[in-house]
Design a protein around this nucleic acid. Structure first.
Length: 427
RNA sequence: GGAGAGAUGCCGGAGUGGUUGAACGGGGCGGUCUCGAAAACCGUUAUUCUGCUUACGUGGAAUCGAGGGUUCGAAUCCCUCUCUCUCCGCCA
């Protein structure tokens, strides 16, 4: 959520930011309602002040034996007016709030202005030693679905039977590989990047979904368990960021860095067909997520290091990748700045998004009311929150299987994973 | 699922209609004392909104789980909801 004071003071800046995000700008409406709201507050507070004054005098007057019946009658009228103003005010504030909840974060000034994914900027690229985009023997590499079938490690058909399409089943060495990947990534961030581990709940309440910005705007993309008012999480970002909802953190504890595994559940409404085969778009996948709570002045540096933390995993796995800076038009609702990491798929012959690292500045913190006490001013301030996948195993698995396949159609286990899997070849 | 108890500030814990933003204790912070520390003593200890000033500040309003209601006046009375705890049942 944007700060209403900031909107009040920088309406043009906010409008431009929203337009650059390809979103609808309702700022004039917001300012009008805000103006009305403040007028009402003034009126109501004045009456309440009067009521408080008189009410504290009444017992003294009674004691002194004075007649207070006129005052009581007068105050009854005042109270009625207050009730009326308060209910009007509540209505207006609800209206204002519901609009504000739909207004996206505005892009940081360093973000390139652009309309769509085509305007994203490639920042850098990393390729394993001796890597080539064209296969040496001229043969077309198998895609991950063919590999999965051939080696009997992935089963999309049975997943569709037991749950629906987009619910993959991992089998045998495939299941072990998936589990190993998760453990490897968690351990790596724990030991090399100084995160502490969280194993979060996979179902969260509505307040949590609002806190990180999934609701109300993205409701159609979320699963919901109506009976209990719970939502299966689309990412561990939601429970982990909400760990500190409605808290005031110590400045000396910042930055707080968490890493956690979770299954992720996404409806992906309306995305059937295109790019939806195999692992490319699924309803349930596994992800290791990094979340940071930081001081405002450090957040953009923290974003850079967050991306590097995710990159380290890919370098350790020796998988080709590139980094994109998303343009304003491709930025998500809550993000101020975001880098995507894409891994190379030789069979698809294209880059696949395997990670997204974002700085939300104070947008989520404001919604979720996550603050820290500034040691100098002694006042609470909103933290900045960041998160990044480190990484999502589904897309990563595509690149891993395809890049590590042998001409015979077997898959070599990356060296760093072998101590986790207990085998070094899938055949 | 059944029965009961409870929700107060950083923490513990009083408070059942009128200077209660909230006793008392603990913790934290500042100070006195000390070579230093402890002890003791003194002081201090929230957040949000809003007006004026916009550097500091200052006036007002609100906040005792959440939301309504009664009343001139509610932490205190009434209603609804949420959550926590205890016992029983069920269960990985």
């Amino acid at each position: 959520m944007l700060d209403i004071k900031f909107i009040r003071e920088n309406p043009e800046k906010v409008k431009q930011g929203i337009i650059n995000k390809n979103e609808k700008d309702r700022i004039d409406e917001v300012l009008e309602i805000d103006q009305k709201r403040r007028e009402l507050i003034l009126l109501a507070d004045e009456l309440k002040s009067k009521r408080n004054q008189v009410s504290s005098k009444i017992p003294q007057m009674k004691k002194a034996g004075q007649d207070v019946s006129n005052l009581l009658a007068e105050m009854k009228t005042v109270s009625g007016q207050i009730t009326e103003l308060d209910s009007k005010l509540r209505e207006i504030e609800e209206n204002l709030n519901s609009i504000l909840m739909y207004i996206p974060n505005i892009p940081h000034e360093s973000v390139p202005v652009g309309k769509s994914a085509e305007d994203n900027v490639v920042v850098r690229q990393w390729l394993p030693e001796g890597f080539s985009f064209t296969s040496e023997n001229g043969l077309k590499p198998l895609d991950h679905i063919e590999i999965g079938k051939k080696l009997n490690i992935l089963d999309f058909e049975r997943g569709a039977k037991i749950s629906g399409s987009g619910f993959p089943v991992y089998k045998g060495k495939g299941a072990t590989l998936e589990r190993s990947l998760i453990n490897f990534m968690l351990d790596y961030h724990l030991h090399n990047h100084n995160y502490s581990e969280i194993f979060p709940p996979f179902l969260v309440n509505e307040d949590s979904m609002k806190g990180t910005g999934q609701l109300p705007k993205m409701a159609d993309d979320m699963y919901i368990i109506n009976l209990d008012g719970l939502y299966p999480i689309p990412t561990a970002e939601v429970p982990i960021t909400n760990l500190h909802r409605d808290e005031i953190l110590n400045e000396k504890d910042l930055p707080i860095k968490y890493v956690g595994y979770s299954a992720c559940f996404r409806r992906e409404a309306g995305s059937y067909g295109k790019e939806s085969k195999g692992f490319l778009r699924v309803h349930q996948f596994n992800k290791v997520e990094m979340v940071k709570f930081v001081k405002p002045e450090t957040s953009f540096d923290e974003l850079e290091s967050l991306v590097k933390d995710a990159e380290d995993i890919l370098q350790a796995l020796n998988i080709p990748y590139r980094i994109l800076m998303l343009c304003t038009g491709d930025l998500s609702f809550s993000a101020s700045k975001c880098y995507d990491i894409e891994t190379w798929s030789p069979a698809e012959n294209k880059w696949l998004e395997a990670s997204s690292c974002s700085n939300f500045v104070d947008f989520q913190a404001r919604r979720a009311n996550i603050r820290f006490r500034n040691e100098q001013t002694k006042k609470p301030e909103f933290v900045h929150t960041l998160n990044g996948s480190g990484l999502a195993t589904s897309r990563l698995m595509v690149s891993l299987l395809e890049n590590y396949q042998t001409p015979e159609g077997k898959v070599i286990v990356p060296k760093v994973l072998q101590k986790y899997t207990g085998f070094n070849l899938i055949d």
